[in-house]
Simulated scan of single mutants.
Amino acid sequence: MIEAARIRLNGWQRVAVALGSAAGALLDPRRADLIAALGETTGRPAFAKVLERMERSPEGRAVLKERPRVLSTEVGHAWDLPSNTFGAAYARFMGSRNFSPDDRPPVRFMETEELAYVAMRAREVHDFWHTLFGLPTNLIGESALKVIEFEQMLLPMCMMSVVGGTARFSEKQRRLFYQHYFPWALKAGLQCTDLMCVYYERHFHEDLEDVRRKWGIIPAPLPPRSDGV
C-alpha cells in the first residue's frame, strides 16, 4: 500500500508541493493531507537519520523488519486489555475522541520503500505519543507535541506547525503555552528515549506508568486552574 501510493518528484516539483502544502495548511490546519505532504517534501534528511537510528537499535530493527501498521485490524485488541495497561490507555484516548487508527493519510512523496515506511510509522505513532505524554488534542496540546516531535525527529514540518499553531492562539492561550507547556515539552522531548525505536505494539499489555518510567516519559503537567486548556 505504501509503495502504490508513492509519487516521484523532481527538485522543482518537490519545492512546489512543499510551498503549496505549507500555504494550504496555514489556511486550514485541519487538512491532514497537506500537513503530511509538507512533512514528506521537507523531511527526507530527517527521516533518513531516523532510519539510521532505527537500524542501530535492536527494537528499531525489529520494527523495520516486521513493519507493523497501526490499523484497526492490528491494534483492535487494545480495547480488551486491562484498564491499567498502555494499550487500554491508547484505546480510551482513541475512543473518547471517536478517532480511528485508519484515518491517517498515505505516504506519497518518499523516494524509497524504507523511507516511506519510516514516514508512515512516524505518522501512525502520533496517537501513542499523545497517550504516553497525556496531551489533549486541542491546539495547545498538538503544538506541545510538535515540539517533542521536532526534538525527536528534527522534522522542519514540526517546527513550522508550532509557529503556525501559536500564531492562531489567543493571548491567553499563548501565555499558557509559553509559560506552562513549552518549557515542559523541551525537557520532555530531550529526556525520553528515542521514541521512533520503540515497538509499541509489543508493550500494549504492560502497565502505563511502568512504560512511562522505562522510556523516560514526563507526562504533561496539569494546566493552572485559572487558565484551563
Rank of each mutant, 00 (worst) to 15 (best):
I2D: 09
A4T: 13
I7F: 04
I7W: 04
L9R: 07
L9I: 00
L9A: 01
N10D: 15
N10V: 05
W12I: 15
Q13P: 01
V15Y: 10
V15E: 10
V15D: 08
A16G: 12
V17F: 03
L19F: 14
G20H: 00
G20M: 04
G24L: 05
L26R: 07
L26D: 08
L26I: 15
L27P: 14
P29N: 00
R31M: 05
A32Q: 14
L34D: 06
I35Y: 13
I35D: 10
I35S: 09
L38C: 02
T41Q: 07
T41C: 12
R44I: 14
P45R: 05
A48E: 15
M54K: 11
M54Q: 13
R56Y: 10
E59V: 07
E59M: 05
G60E: 10
R61H: 04
E66G: 04
E66R: 15
R67Q: 15
R67C: 01
L71R: 08
T73I: 12
E74W: 06
V75P: 09
G76H: 08
G76Q: 09
H77T: 10
D80R: 10
L81H: 04
L81K: 08
P82R: 00
N84P: 13
F86E: 09
A88G: 03
A89W: 14
F93E: 04
G95W: 09
G95S: 10
S100K: 01
D102Y: 01
P105Y: 13
P105E: 07
V107S: 05
R108G: 09
F109C: 09
M110Q: 08
M110I: 09
M110Y: 08
E111P: 15
T112Q: 00
E113K: 13
E114K: 12
L115Y: 08
L115K: 03
A116I: 14
A119P: 08
A119S: 14
V125M: 12
W129C: 11
L132D: 03
F133I: 00
N138T: 03
L139R: 13
I140R: 01
E142W: 06
A144S: 14
L145Y: 07
E149R: 11
F150T: 05
E151F: 13
E151W: 12
P156S: 05
P156R: 06
M157N: 12
M157L: 11
C158P: 03
M160D: 00
V162M: 06
V162N: 03
G164D: 06
R174I: 14
R175V: 14
Y178A: 05
Y178D: 02
Y181D: 02
F182K: 07
P183F: 03
P183R: 11
W184S: 01
A185H: 04
Q191V: 15
D194W: 07
L195C: 12
C197S: 15
Y199W: 15
Y199C: 01
E201Y: 02
E201H: 02
E201V: 01
E201I: 04
R202S: 08
H203G: 01
D207P: 07
E209P: 02
V211Q: 04
V211W: 03
R213K: 14
R213T: 06
K214D: 00
G216Q: 01
G216L: 03
I218Q: 09
I218L: 03
I218E: 04
A220S: 14
A220M: 11
P221W: 06
P223F: 06
G228K: 01
V229Q: 10
V229H: 12
V229C: 10
